[in-house]
């Protein structure tokens, strides 16, 4: 039962990571690639981490070993750090790209360029 749940979570995570990688190749410019690359990958990573958490909790419950509790807690903290640092990095890349003059391709509207 637990193993099935873990496998399903891993498959969902892998599908989103794969789609993120395909998106990096398919999209036209840096901004749209950031959408695919940084965020689909984050969502995929959350699901793979969730698989670790589910597996660790089940083992913690059945075997009553604190090693698995350690694993669960550290994975949760890793996910929280991922959730804080990933958007910061994506924002920094996008801001630097716009400041160095790379304009979004096929954009229907660019308010930032009009203001500056």
């Amino acid at each position: 039962m637990i193993l099935e749940i873990v496998i399903i979570l891993l498959i969902i995570g892998l599908v989103f990571n794969l789609l993120g990688s395909i998106g990096i190749l398919r999209f036209p410019d840096v901004y749209t690639r950031l959408h695919a690359g940084s965020k689909c990958a984050t969502f995929g990573s959350i699901f793979t981490s969730l698989a670790v958490v589910v597996y660790g909790s089940a083992m913690w419950y059945t075997q009553d070993s604190m090693v698995y509790a350690d694993m669960v807690i550290h994975t949760v903290i890793a996910v929280i750090c991922l959730l804080i640092t990933n958007p910061t990095g994506a924002h920094a890349i996008a801001r630097a790209a716009h400041r160095s003059g790379i304009m979004p391709i096929r954009a229907v509207v660019d308010r930032l360029k009009e203001e500056k």
Binding site: Y31, H35, K39, L83, P87, A90, H91, A94, H98
Partner: peptide, 10 residues
């Protein structure tokens, strides 16, 4: 930024 499809630039 964390929601795909939207990205804060400035």
């Amino acid at each position: 930024t964390l929601t795909p499809g939207t990205l804060t630039v400035d």
